[in-house]
Design a protein around this nucleic acid. Sequence first.
DNA 1: CGCATTATGAGTTGCAGG
DNA 2: CCTGCAACTCATAATGCG
Length: 617
Amino acid sequence: MSFSNVNLIFILFYVNNVHFQDKSASGEDSDNIDWNTDDELEIQGDTAFSSSSTLTTRGTEAFASSGEASSSSGVPNSKLVNHFVGMGFPEKQVLKAIEENGEEDTDSILNTLLTYSTLEDSPPKQLCVNSDPISSDYEENLPDDLSDLDGWSENETEDNTSSLSEEHKNLLSLESTGSLSEKEKMLLSLANMGYTVEESSIAMERCGPEASIAELTDFICAAQLSREADIYLPDDDLKPRYNGVSKIKKRKFFEICKKKNDPETETIRLPNPMIGFGVPSMQPENINRSLPDSAIGPPFFYYENVALAPKGVWDTISRFLNDIEPEFVDSKYFCATARKRGYVHNLPVQNRFPLVPLPPLTIQQAFPLSKRWWPQWDMREKLNCIQTAIGSAKLTERIRNALERFDGDPPTSVQKFILDECRKWNLVWVGRNKVAPLEPDEVEMLLGFPKNHTRGGGISRTDRYKSLGNSFQVDTVAYHLSVLKDMFPSGINLLSLFSGIGGAEVALHRLGIKLKNVVSVEKSKVNRDIVRSWWEQTNQTGNLIDFEDVQALDGDRLEEVISYVGGFDLIIGGSPCNNLAGSNRVSRDGLEGKDSSLFYDYFRILDLVKSIMSRSS
DNA sequence: CGCATTATGAGTTGCAGG
DNA sequence: CCTGCAACTCATAATGCG
C-alpha cells in the first residue's frame, strides 16, 4: 500500500533524474553542432602530438653563453656543460643531450634532459654508460615506443628485461643469485619503480645510507621538480646564477628529506565527522583555510585518493602539493554509500552548492523494493564503500541456508554473522532470506553516474565493477567543483588525469559547466571508450582529446597541448589507489607501489603545466 | 585467451573500559 | 596512560570454463 507510493515516487524521481541529464544536454545541441569538429580534432593515443617538434615557443630564451663558439669541433662548451650539471643532471646525460641537439638550442637540450628524467621505464639506451653514438639515433622514437606499452599490470618477467638498462639487468641477475647487498637491493627497488640507477645512486648518496625508499623517491622527485622549475623559471634574474640556484635547490632537497625523517611532522589526522570543509547538511565549527601563495591558481587543481592510506602517505602527498591541507570527506553525506576520500585542491570553499536532484541518502530510499525483504534486525541505513569486487554467490547461498533453519528471527549469533558479511560485501536484501550484491547499474546510480554509463561497448561485467569501484562519487566531487560555475560562465578547459570512466567530466557537465576542451588521460581503452561514448551521447560541443599514458605526457607534449587549447582552467585527477587501499592483501606497498607511485606523475604534470602557463602569460 | 567466480587478512582507527 | 575489541577498506591472484 504505502509501498506503491514510495515506489512511484522513486520511479518518478529516477526518471526525472535521467531526464534531467537529457534535458541539460539537449538544450544546447539544437543549433550549433559542428559534426566535423570532433572527428578532425580528435586525437587518439599518444602519437598525434608526437615528435613533430613544431613548437613555436621554442628557442626564445637561449642562454647568453650559448651564443658564441658554434663549435664544429667535438668538444662541448664546458660552460654549457657545467650549467646543466649544476642543475643536477648527470654529466653523461648532459654530454649526450648536447651531442644530439647541438649547442645552439639550449631549450632542446633541456627538453631532452627532462625526457631522460621523466620518461623512465624506458628503453635501454638512455642510461647505457658506454653507449655508442649510434644509439642516439634511435632516441627519436622514444615517445612512440612508450605509447605502445600496454596495461599497467605487466609483471616484470624475462619478457620485459630486454627494455631495461644494463645496470638494472645486472641487479636483477644478482638478485636471482641472492647476492645483493642492502644498497643494491635498494637500487633494484628504485629501478623497478622506474627510476634510473644513476639518479637513485645520487639520491642514496645524498640522503644517507639509512634513508627509506620513500625518502629516496621524495628526493628524486624533488630533484625532477627542481630541474623543471629551473627550466621554466619565470624569474630571469635567477637564471644566469647557476651556482646560486643550485645551492637553493640543494637546500630544498635536504629540507624535504629532513622533514620526512621527523615523525612529529606526520600529523595529518582524519576529521570526525569526516565532512572536510563542509557538506550540504553540516559545517565544521571553524574553517581556517589559508592557501600558500605558491598554491594560488590559475590553474585550479583537484587531487583525490583514498582517505585510509598507510601512515605518512597523506603527509607526503600534501607536501608535494604545496603543503595544502587535504580535505577528507565521506560520501555518505552525499549519497547512500560511504566513500572516505581525501581531496587536495586550491578551490574556494565558500558558496558551494550540491547537484540537483539530490540523490537518495539512505538504502531504503535508494532501493525501495528491498524494504519488503529487509529484516528488522538489519539496521543499516548506509552502504559501505563500493569496491572493485563483489560478494560470491556461495556466500549469499550460505546466508540463505543459515536463515532458512529458523522460522522467525534467527539467534543473535547468526544475525551477527550475516550482518558482518552483509557489511563486508555490501549485500542488499532482494527476496525472502535472500541477499545479493549490487548490480552494476545500481552502483552507477549510487555513484552519481547516468544509468548504463558503463554498459555496452564491449566491456565485461567484471570490468564494469572494477571501473566503477575505482571512480569518483560524482555528487561529492561536484559539490567541491560547484564554485567554478560562476567563475567560468563560458566554460572551462579541463586536463583530466587518470580519467577512468569520466567522473570529473560527468560532475562538471551535471553542474552545467560547459566543457570547452577536455584533455583526458586514461590507460584503459574500455574506459576511454566509455568517456567518448558519454561525450557523444551528451552532445558536447567542445573537443575531447584523449591520451593513453600519463608517463608519456612530457613537457613537449604539454606545451603543444597548452598552446592548442590555450591553457587549462582545472587539472583534476585521482591517481591509482590500489597500493594504498585496505582491500589489497597482496601489494599494499604505499605511495611507492607499482601503480600508486603514479601520483608523482600527477605532481610532475601539474607542476609542468603551472610553469608553462605562468611563462606564457 | 576472455571472462566469471572464488578465496585470500592486515593495517589503521575509534572507542569503551580499565 | 593502557589494552582489547569492533569496524572498515577505489584489491589480487588462482582457478575453471567455453
